[in-house]
Design a protein around this nucleic acid. Structure first.
Length: 520
DNA sequence: ATAGGGTTAG
């Protein structure tokens, strides 16, 4: 092994002086020692990782694929996890073997770059590095996430060609993938291909049937599954809850002996999605009596319920729980907190959480901008909207809906119309029905009813109920009875089950009565 | 020898 290191051997991020600073005689490092260091120390200490990297380069162990593959994993999975560095290391490996390839594919998947997984996989096949049974679950999953159905089918063909059909890991991820594409029959074929399946394969198909809406097939399969585990129940419960079939969900739930956090959050989330917020909070309390420690999944669901109920006390309790247990506030949990505080009228607290968050995603900004908009603080909302762009966060269609609604609430017609143009020209986002709803609201609130109606009649799509509702609200505000009445009837025809519409319509009549009383 | 699968969410 060569002990000399030239700069061309180096992944760019490691400077020559960082390598020479390692004065330990490299001959003392065997492969086993290096792997030990990588696996034990380098996940938490950046310093250790860089030193180990230097030693690996100096000692020539970099050519050892077992070592370089592990190094790729360390850069991707350590606490400082950095995909770009992992890729740099990978790119400097000469003729990577299948282990190194698998490590880099995994790294991309875990860093939410499924497209990269697919393109690296085709590169891998192109350079004739033969994938093995560890490669395919990662690639199938990447195809599922990106809904790359053509690629997925091809990859499946490779599995067949390589004679790996019988592997249960490949089977379960393949079933999951086909179900994701809506090809539940293909998924079934994989299960029934004659090789052995395990409970995870069965669960994947149960979930597949439920995702495709075939509840009866799922029930049938669940019944015939011999060794059900918690996951089998969880799949059924979340499926039932998704379709609003709470009695059946609850029945299975009650039958279970060992519920895990997923079981609880499946049912809590089901209630929240269907608007049964009180029930969601009750189940959450039940969960605590059962001594299951809630973590971020459940907490985010419960916060959503608190937000909708305006249950500030419960929300604060959850925030305290997060702090007491030093639960990491990721983008989802943080956004749920911001949203809860904002909807409960505590913009100050929402702002504090927002500012303290390290990981903000576009939906985090949306929650804060939307919260400000909701409370009529249009100027602040717009300012935040610009700040977001200064921080290189790209607004999406929801951001613009929030900004438009801020303008509508504050009666800023010109700014609202500007924002709409800006959205199209700067970000190439075509306005959708939700944006037109905001524009109708914007014009209607300010009393430009004819213009608002004009917008509706020139819509490039079918107006939805929210659009008509915005106009109806405006009619009510400005006491235009006949027009409002006509609209109210349109709405009742569109959504007869929505009782809020009756209230709105009756408000219009009430306003008319007031007017008549005044005339007398 | 090393590495991989299903079920919760925004």
């Amino acid at each position: 092994m060569s002990t000399k290191v030239t700069t061309t051997d180096l992944p760019h991020h490691l400077k020559p002086e960082e390598i020479s600073a390692t004065n330990i005689p490299t001959s003392e490092f065997s492969q086993k020692t290096i792997l030990d260091i990588l696996n034990k120390k380098c996940h938490t200490s950046w310093q250790h990782l860089k030193q180990a990297h230097a030693v690996i380069l100096k000692s020539g162990h970099f050519q050892d694929h077992y070592v370089s593959g592990t190094l790729v994993k360390c850069y991707a999975n350590s606490r400082f996890s950095n995909l770009e560095l992992a890729l740099k290391v990978f790119n400097s490996v000469h003729k990577p073997n299948v282990f190194v390839w698998n490590s880099v594919l995994r790294a991309c998947l875990e860093h939410n770059e499924p497209w990269r997984v697919i393109s690296l996989y085709s590169e891998m096949v192109g350079v004739d590095s033969k994938p093995n049974k560890f490669t395919y679950p990662t690639v199938f999953k990447a195809c599922s996430i990106t809904e790359a159905d053509k690629e997925g089918v091809q990859v499946h063909a490779h599995v067949v060609k390589n004679g790996l059909c019988g592997d249960v890991h490949i089977k379960s991820s393949g079933i999951q993938m086909y179900a994701c594409f809506g090809c539940v029959n293909k998924a079934r074929q994989i299960l029934d291909d004659g090789s052995k399946s395990d409970v995870i394969c069965w669960n994947a198909l149960i979930d597949g049937y439920l995702k495709c809406g075939d509840i009866e097939a799922a029930k049938e399969l669940f019944k015939s599954t011999k060794d059900k585990n918690t996951g089998s129940y969880n799949a059924m419960i979340s499926g039932f809850a998704r379709f609003g079939r709470f009695e059946e969900a609850r029945k299975l739930f009650n039958e279970m002996n060992d519920k895990d956090e997923i079981t609880w959050s499946a049912i809590i989330d089901g209630y929240t999605k269907d608007g049964y917020y009180k029930e969601a909070l009750e189940v959450f309390n039940e969960m605590q009596r059962d001594k299951i420690k809630p973590r971020k999944f459940v907490l985010s669901c419960v916060l959503a319920a608190c937000a909708s109920l305006g249950a500030l006390d419960q929300g604060i309790w959850i925030h305290d729980h997060v702090k007491r247990n030093s639960i990491y506030v990721d983008a989802v949990l943080g956004t749920a907190l911001v949203d809860m505080y904002a909807k409960c009228g505590r913009l100050d607290m929402a702002w504090k959480v927002f500012e303290d968050m390290k990981m903000k995603e576009v939906f985090t900004w949306n929650a804060m901008i939307g919260g400000l908009a909701m409370h009529g603080r249009a100027d602040d909302a717009i300012e935040l909207f610009f700040k977001m762009q200064r921080e290189k966060m790209r607004p999406d269609r929801i951001t613009f809906a929030c900004v438009l609604s801020a303008c509508a609430h504050a009666g800023m017609i010109d700014r609202g119309l500007q924002a709409l143009t800006y959205m199209q020209q700067m970000y190439g986002i075509d306005p959708e029905v939700e944006h037109y709803g905001c524009i109708v609201d914007l014009l209607g609130r300010a009393g430009y009813l004819a213009e608002a109606e004009e917008v509706i009649s020139s819509l490039p799509m079918e107006p939805n109920a929210a659009v008509w509702e915005a106009l109806l609200g405006a009619c009510r505000k400005h006491g235009v009875v006949e027009f409002g009445e006509r609209l109210g009837k349109i709405l009742l025809e569109m959504e007869p089950e929505n009782s809020g519409r009756y209230a709105l319509l009756s408000n219009i009549y009430a306003k008319e009565e007031d007017a008549m009383m005044l005339q007398k």
